[in-house]
Amino acid sequence: MGEAIGVAGAAAGIGVGAVFLGAGLAKLRNRRVFPGVVANYRLLPEPLVAPVAVTLPIAEVVIGLALFAGLRVAAVPAGLLLLAFAAAMAINIGRGRSHIDCGCGRPELRQPLSRALVVRNLVLAALLLPLLMPTPPVGSALWFVALAFGVALYLLTLLANALSALAQGPLAMERNSR
């Protein structure tokens, strides 16, 4: 049982770490527009928008690298960020502001807020729970299994994001208005 939890934790660390790393790097590449995304959530006082917009992508890259490297302690800030993102999205959806971009890191796939994104973040946070449990280190053969599952988790997250963005994109809106 401990070995299975260890493999699940390692897979989650790799998959969620890659999600954080990809999102943080995308935000850094688009750092000129990211403050507007943060401001659009209307949750922070104006003086905090710029500092959050600067530090959040860096934090995501650091957390992603730490998870990817197997540093179990990184599951705590990663989980807290995912829960904060889910809460920010849910608050704005509740306010009727689901049209704003989630800021998930892929500007080429502008992604309006949705319940699916909230659930995605909650699931990713829950997947990190095995990293908080004391388990023996994952052996080399099982590490490759964890790597395969971690990469699959990352790819499934990318696929879900792309499908969600496309389902809410201009072509889908045009088709639905007919």
Rank of each mutant, 00 (worst) to 15 (best):
3 E>A: 14
3 E>F: 11
4 A>V: 12
7 V>K: 04
7 V>T: 06
11 A>E: 03
15 G>Q: 01
17 G>P: 01
17 G>R: 00
20 F>M: 05
25 L>F: 09
26 A>F: 06
27 K>R: 10
28 L>H: 03
28 L>M: 10
32 R>W: 04
36 G>V: 03
39 A>P: 01
40 N>C: 08
44 L>H: 06
47 P>A: 11
47 P>N: 12
48 L>F: 12
48 L>Y: 08
48 L>I: 04
48 L>T: 08
49 V>N: 08
50 A>K: 14
50 A>D: 15
57 P>G: 11
57 P>V: 08
58 I>S: 13
61 V>Y: 05
64 G>V: 10
64 G>I: 07
66 A>F: 09
66 A>S: 14
68 F>S: 11
68 F>A: 14
69 A>R: 13
72 R>H: 14
72 R>K: 15
73 V>G: 13
75 A>D: 01
75 A>R: 00
76 V>L: 15
79 G>C: 08
81 L>Y: 12
81 L>Q: 05
84 A>S: 15
84 A>E: 11
85 F>W: 08
87 A>V: 15
90 A>W: 05
90 A>Q: 10
90 A>Y: 01
91 I>A: 08
91 I>H: 09
93 I>L: 10
94 G>N: 07
94 G>E: 07
96 G>L: 05
97 R>D: 05
99 H>C: 07
100 I>H: 02
102 C>P: 00
103 G>K: 00
104 C>K: 00
105 G>M: 02
105 G>C: 07
106 R>A: 13
108 E>A: 14
110 R>P: 02
115 R>M: 13
115 R>S: 12
116 A>E: 11
117 L>M: 12
118 V>I: 11
121 N>L: 00
121 N>I: 03
121 N>A: 04
122 L>H: 06
124 L>S: 05
126 A>M: 06
127 L>V: 09
127 L>Q: 04
128 L>R: 03
130 P>N: 09
130 P>M: 08
130 P>K: 04
131 L>H: 00
132 L>E: 03
133 M>Q: 11
133 M>I: 15
134 P>V: 06
135 T>Y: 05
135 T>K: 06
139 G>R: 09
146 A>M: 08
148 A>H: 03
149 F>V: 12
149 F>S: 13
151 V>A: 13
151 V>K: 06
152 A>M: 10
154 Y>P: 01
155 L>W: 09
156 L>Q: 12
156 L>Y: 09
156 L>V: 14
160 A>Q: 05
160 A>I: 05
163 L>M: 11
164 S>E: 13
165 A>Q: 03
165 A>T: 04
169 G>L: 03
173 M>T: 12
177 S>Y: 10
178 R>W: 14
